[in-house]
Amino acid sequence: MKIVIACDSFKGCLTSKEVATCIEKGIYRQNPKHEVVSYVIGDGGEGTVAAFHHTCHGTLVGIDCVDAYMHKIKAAVTLIDDGQTAVIEVANIIGLSMRDRMNRAPLFTSSYGVGMVIKKVAALGCKKIIIGLGGSSTNDGGMGVLMALGARFYDENHQPLLSQALSLEKVRYLDIKRLNRFDGIELIAACDVKNHLLGENGATYMFGKQKGLFPNQIKKIERGMSNYRYQLMRYSNVDIDSFEGGGAAGGIGAVLIGLLNAKMKPGIELLLSYSDMEEKMKDCDLVITGEGQSDRQTKFGKVPAGVIEVANRLHKPTICISGALGLEYMDLYDLGFVGIYSIADRAMTFDQALSQASDKLEAATFGIINTIEYFKESHS
C-alpha cells in the first residue's frame, strides 16, 4: 500500500514529526514493503512554525523576546518565500505548555512577547507575517501585543497599567497614536476557531478554564474584557467583539483583525496551500491523520478535518488515530472517516499516557494496518 500520513502534534507529548515517525514504524513493522509519505502538520497552534519550515524548506531564526511571564526567551521563527514571509506561533512564545499546570498564573500572563516578535520580524524586511494563534496561555485581550507595538493603557488615575488579565477592568484611558500598524505588510492570523471575544462562546468562557482560570475568576475577567472592548471602541471606533476568530489566543485575534487589519485564515487550510500533499494523495491507498484528542471541536478547522477534506475530493479512505477520543467524536464519521481510533488501550494516568504514547501509537498503527491487509488479502 501507499500511505499518506498527515497528523497534528499530540500537544505536550509528541510533535507532528514524532507522531508520523511512530506511525511509520507501525506500518513498516506490519510490512516493510509499504510506501509511506509523511507530512509535518500544524493548524496554527503548537508546531505551526515547524510545519511551515518543513513544508516550505524555510530558514529558522531565533528571535529574542519574553514569554507570558515576561521572562527572556528566544522564539523560533521560520522565513519562507525567499525571506519575504515570516511564520511565528504564539505557542512557542506564550504557550500554555511552556509551564506545568501547577505553576500557571493566568491572571498575570501577558501577550507582550508576541508583539515583540511581530515587530522584530517586520524589521527583517518581511512583506507577509503569518501568526499562528493556537495554544496560548494568556487572556489579556491582546493588550500586551498592542503595548509592544506602541499603545499605552492607563487607569482612572492616569497611572500606566501592566498588560495582563487583571488590568482589563481597570482600563479607562489609552493612547494608540503611536501604535505600529505595519503599513505595507500583510498580516495573516492562522486560527482554527471562530469564537468572538465576548460571551459564553468567547475567549474567557470557552478557553479560560483550560488556561487555569477558576469559575469566579472567569466572571471577573469577562467583565474586565467587556470594559476593555468598550474603552478600545471609544478611542478607535472599532468593536473588537464583532470579528469571527476574535476570541483566539485570549483576544489576540480580536486586536490583530480589528486594529492591525490582519486577515483571518484557517491554519490547516493555509499550510496545505503551500504543500504538495494533495498531489501525493492522488495515487495513495490510505490516508492517516490524527491529533492529541479528537472530539466535537475537531470538525471546526482542526488538522483531521482539513486533511479529510482533501482526501474526500480524491475519494481516498481516511482513518484518524488520536491520543484520546472526547465528547461527540462519533460525529466525525459524518466527515467521511472510515475509522477513528484512540491509542489508549487501558485505564491510565495522564502522565502514563504521555510516557507511553510513542509505543502505543506504533502498536495501534500496526494493529490497524494488519487488519486492513488481512481483509484485502481475504477478498482478493
Rank of each mutant, 00 (worst) to 15 (best):
K128D: 07
T109E: 12
L146S: 09
D140Y: 10
I131G: 11
N139E: 11
M102C: 11
L166R: 14
R99H: 10
M98L: 13
H158A: 06
G134C: 07
L133R: 05
L133W: 02
F153W: 11
L146G: 08
G95T: 01
P160S: 08
R101T: 11
G150F: 03
Q159F: 04
V121F: 03
I118S: 03
E156P: 00
E156F: 01
S167W: 09
D140A: 14
G125H: 13
G95V: 01
K128G: 08
I129Y: 09
G135E: 07
C126S: 08
L149S: 11
K170S: 13
E169Y: 13
L162N: 13
E156C: 01
M143W: 11
I129L: 15
N157R: 09
S110D: 13
Y112M: 15
I118W: 03
S167P: 03
Y154N: 02
G142A: 10
G141N: 09
S97D: 12
K170E: 13
F108T: 15
S163Q: 13
M98C: 11
R104T: 06
D155V: 01
Q164P: 00
L162V: 09
V90A: 09
K120M: 10
I130E: 05
L162A: 11
G113M: 12
Q164L: 12
V121K: 06
R152L: 07
G142D: 04
L168T: 07
I93A: 04
Q164C: 15
S136C: 07
S97G: 00
N92A: 00
G142W: 07
G150K: 07
K170T: 00
V145R: 03
K119E: 14
K119A: 13
P106L: 13
Y112A: 15
A151P: 06
G134V: 06
V145C: 07
M143Y: 10
V117C: 04
H158W: 07
L124I: 14
I130F: 07
P106I: 08
F108S: 14
A91P: 00
I130Y: 08
L168G: 06
T109A: 12
S97H: 08
K120T: 10
K120E: 14
T138F: 02
S97I: 08
S167D: 14
L161G: 04
K119F: 02
K127V: 04
Q164E: 14
N103G: 06
S111T: 14
K120Y: 12
I94D: 01
H158D: 12
M143L: 14
M98Q: 14
L161W: 06
N103W: 04
Y154F: 14
P160V: 10
G115C: 10
R101D: 12
G150Q: 07
G125N: 12
A151L: 09
K119L: 05
F153H: 09
E156R: 03
D155T: 01
A91H: 00
E156H: 05
V145Q: 02
D155H: 02
L96I: 08
M143D: 12
I129Q: 13
D100I: 09
G132Y: 03
A91D: 00
K127G: 10
H158E: 12
G135H: 05
G144M: 15
L96Y: 02
G95K: 02
Q159E: 09
G134F: 05
K127C: 06
G135M: 12
L133E: 03
P106Q: 13
R99E: 07
M116P: 00
V114D: 01
L161R: 08
I118P: 00
V90N: 01
M147W: 05
N103H: 15
A148M: 08
N139P: 02
I118C: 04
K127A: 08
L124N: 10
L124G: 07
